[in-house]
Design a protein around this nucleic acid. Structure first.
Length: 553
RNA sequence: GCCCCCGUAGCUCAGGGGAUAGAGCACUGCCCUCCGGAGGCAGUGGCGCAGGUUCGAAUCCUGCCGGGGGCACCA
């Protein structure tokens, strides 16, 4: 029995108490069932009685007593104790708990999936780095976390479109093109341009691909550097991302919005809503109506639309594609966007609290040898995605970036994460999986097979360490669901570390395979199922994070 | 000045109002003639400060201190 299943049982116990007049409360639908830290507190605990006490007008322990009496009638429940101020501590029947191992193995990849977000169409935008340079370290965090979040939302039943928006229109692309041209001509890059070895490389590639380029007129050259350069940069970005295991469903070009007249359309739509005005020769959106700090310019005095105007058009485009909600992951250096973005959503007549969700994540500092790694674009020593993968590997990088809350600035120690030792949390988790894989191979060599669930006696999994492991396995679906709801993939990573530890302790205490010339027993079979169930959860959890679950290490 | 995020063990970080605040690493001492010791057990050690709400606060509210980020007709 998993905590969710128990939650239903508890709810019906309350309903039954209410029905027979023993309790005068509304049956709550947000019953909290959790796994107590202290094993003396049973397999699961709920604070329900504490929560209902006020509504029932009775002391918590008295309410607890009523619910406990009902609960004790339910199948699969061994004992119900009342503790402390009124906690209900539930001990499951051994078979009911052991059953979890069978459920997990039978469900396989589906174990942990829920339908919590079924029917929701979500657009998840992240990374969205401009094609003027490689994906730098700051954006890599969003690649890891955003991709994991996408998997998490899908695991909860949502239909997710991962989207990368790239700004291929506007001034910084001009600067990029001029930088390439300067590099090709052996001149220093312009003051406001882009520097770095990659500029020289791409300039050389453009020159090689376009014979006779040097003889053409200056503005013609620039156009070539612009289109070819962006294209090449774009290829590099996509390939570094795919080397990181991140592939988007949609790569959305800002230029296509300009081309299609989407900006004008968005502006006129906003005008119809009555939020557009002109002042100082520019066209503005009155975002202050919707709580923004100041109004925002849509079209500048020189007639050029702003980036913000493109944001409006892009948002409208997403909504027209039928997404219920637009999620955008941004770094803390874009905090200033939130107010204006919420306002533009409201200006279109949408609800910024339901149609939009902006996730702001804090920045990453790199550390090496205990010292912060100083990066400067000008000096060209910026660490980009490719460098990071080369330094510590894609699995370690993804795991390191995804295991911390996005609200937390993190120090990423390149020395630590490049070590192939147990210092490194990702190895701790992966090792647990490899260890089980090895054990299952050994079992198979002995001719031992899992067989059918009906032939397993789950009540045999009765020791403390086995129960601990079963409870941890049972918790996984709830971990996935709450991580999705809270947009917090790191919870999955932390859970996996705990699960790995719980498995190692089980392994240490419980012999699985027969020794020497002993015969396999029904306990052997039950424990093999428990191992297989653990491996299933480790695989599914690592899959959410986009990290491999190795069979061998 | 205003807005956002964060201050938890020596270090890197978990802790969505609940019971004795956790993990990994580091440090000290241990553990299988046996399935992967990349493991396990035990010990040392902590909620920035001050108020408030609550039966109960690391968690919610206010103030202060400290760190990071943001406040463009830039993208």
């Amino acid at each position: 029995m998993t905590p969710e299943q128990l939650r239903d049982v508890v709810r019906s116990a309350v309903a039954s108490a209410v029905e027979r007049g023993a309790l005068a409360v509304a049956v709550p639908d947000d019953v909290v069932v959790d796994r107590p830290k202290n094993p003396e507190h049973g397999d699961y605990a709920t604070n329900l009685a504490l929560r209902l006490a006020k509504a029932a007008g009775r002391p918590p322990r008295e309410v607890a007593e009523v619910i406990a009496a009902e609960l004790r009638q339910q199948p699969g429940i061994d004992a119900v104790d009342i503790a402390g101020p009124g906690f209900l501590n539930v001990r499951l029947a051994k078979a009911a708990l052991g059953q979890v191992a069978l459920q997990a193995v039978a469900a396989g990849k589906a174990y942990g999936r829920t339908e919590m977000l079924a029917g929701q169409r979500l657009n998840l935008e992240f990374v969205s780095a401009n094609p003027t340079g490689p994906v730098h370290i700051g954006a890599v965090r969003w690649a890891a976390v955003g991709d994991a979040l996408g998997r998490l939302l899908e695991s909860s039943g949502a239909e997710v479109t991962r989207e990368y928006y790239f700004n291929d229109a506007g001034a910084q692309i001009d600067r990029f093109a001029r930088s390439l041209q300067a590099a090709a001509q052996g001149r220093p890059v312009p003051e406001d341009g882009y520097a770095g070895a990659y500029i020289d490389d791409i300039a050389a590639e453009v020159v090689a691909a376009e014979p006779g380029l040097a003889e053409r007129a200056d503005d013609e050259q620039l156009a070539v550097f612009r289109s070819r350069g962006v294209e090449l940069m774009w290829v590099e970005i996509r390939s570094s991302l795919s080397g990181f295991g991140v592939v988007f469903d949609v790569y959305f070009s800002e230029w296509t919005l300009h081309e299609a007249g989407a900006l004008e359309k968005a502006i006129s739509r906003l005008r119809e809503q009555g939020h557009v005005f002109e002042a100082d020769g520019a066209i503005w959106l009155r975002t202050t109506t919707f709580g923004d700090d100041k109004d925002r310019v849509l079209v500048k005095g020189d007639g050029e639309p702003t980036y913000f105007a493109a944001d409006c058009a892009y948002y409208l485009n997403k909504r027209e594609r039928g997404f219920d909600k637009v999620l955008i992951m941004l770094g803390a250096d874009h905090t200033g966007y939130v107010g204006r973005y919420k306002a533009l959503v409201a200006a279109f007549g949408d609800d910024p609290d339901t149609n939009l969700e902006i996730l702001i994540g804090q920045l990453v500092n790199l550390v090496k040898g205990g010292e912060p790694v100083r990066m400067s674009k000008r000096a060209g020593n910026v660490i980009n995605l490719g460098d990071l993968v080369e330094a510590i590997g894609a699995d370690a990088a993804r795991y390191a970036l995804a295991r911390a809350s996005i609200d937390q600035q993190i120090d990423l120690d390149l020395d630590l994460w490049s070590r192939q030792t147990s210092d490194n949390p990702v190895f701790y988790v992966q090792y647990a999986h490899a260890r089980i894989a090895s054990l299952l191979r050994a079992a198979s060599d002995l001719g031992l097979v899992l067989g059918e669930p009906a032939d397993v006696d789950p009540a045999l999994l009765a020791t403390q360490r086995e129960s601990d492991l079963l409870r941890a396995i049972a918790e996984f679906p709830q971990v996935v669901a709450s991580a999705a709801e809270l947009r917090a993939p790191h919870r999955v990573a932390r859970y996996l570390e705990e699960l790995a530890g719980t498995y190692h302790r089980f392994y240490d205490a419980c012999r699985v395979l027969p020794r020497g010339d002993e015969e396999a027993t029904t306990l052997t079979t039950a424990r093999l199922w428990l191992c297989a169930a653990t491996a299933t959860v480790l695989r599914n959890g690592l899959a959410v994070l986009g990290v491999h679950a190795p069979e061998r290490m």
